[in-house]
Amino acid sequence: MSPAVFPSRSVASRLTTLFWRHPRLLLGLLLAPPLLWLGLVYLGALAALLLQSFYSIDDFSGLIVPELTLKTYAQLFRPSNFDVITRTLLMALSVTVASGVIAFPVAYYAARFARGRWKAAFYLGVMLPLWSSYLVKVYAWKLILAKEGIVTWAATATHTDWLLDAALSLPGIGGSSLSTSYIGTFLVFCYVWLPYMILPMQAALERVPTSMLEASADLGATAGQTFRTVTLPLALPGIIAGSIFTFSLTLGDYIIPQIIGNSASFIGMAVYQLQGTAGNVPLAAAFAVVPILIMLVYLTLARRAGAFDAL
């Protein structure tokens, strides 16, 4: 009688048994690298940013004083800095509303009427601009809005240049040409963030059950009434979800107002210039905390409206 011979077990199969007996161990091994990366690199960086915003800068030496103070935050309320914040907020609000208005017909048509090949065309038609190069899109608008560019040409050709001139002479938002006015900045923001608005809107509209629309019609509602009392309330979370993107992206952008606009400062530009040429990292950090706070409030309100289920 010789003893039973078991095949020698390889490291791989011994590890397999170990993972089978202790599933938590496998989970830990899977999670460790991404957690280390995001936890250390990203959360660490955000914590560093938050900490810096409580530092201040010495007025005489220009050096950072690493003592906790609210002095830097108080500087945000100086008129010149506070203007930057209100300007950015107003821009983000108007861009969000305008994108919503332009996006709705596209999303509504794609969700309710487009079928088969058209549906795919609409999807690609929104997705490709969403992913295609941001800088190329901004550059395209520099060509369009330039004084000698296509908009001026089209206005002259259709004899509507008086309309363009009237828009440009509006106090506050006008300028010498579209590419150096708030109107230009606003148009480019709308263009660049529009796909972010369409996609969640379309997803929400697709989830509105057809049976409810039929029930509404059976009960005698006109198309307009059905739209106002059934479709719109049910699609609202999707609209709010889209607005999160347009709002947040406008709050933080600093490239667009730098290239197209009247060189008035926005939050993103303030952050970039303060940390770079001015070397005032604490104030830059405090400026960066402003959009974080605004977005936290916005997200809390959006969560109450059920927007996260629509993402």
Partner: peptide, 27 residues
């Protein structure tokens, strides 16, 4: 919380991710 952490770098405006890394890298 982890799923939030994964989305955060793209949900927050790029300028925030940027300045956060900018101030952390020298540290």
């Amino acid at each position: 919380q982890l799923s939030l952490l994964i989305v955060l770098p793209i949900a927050l405006p790029g300028v925030i991710t940027g300045i956060a890394l900018r101030s952390a890298i020298p540290m």
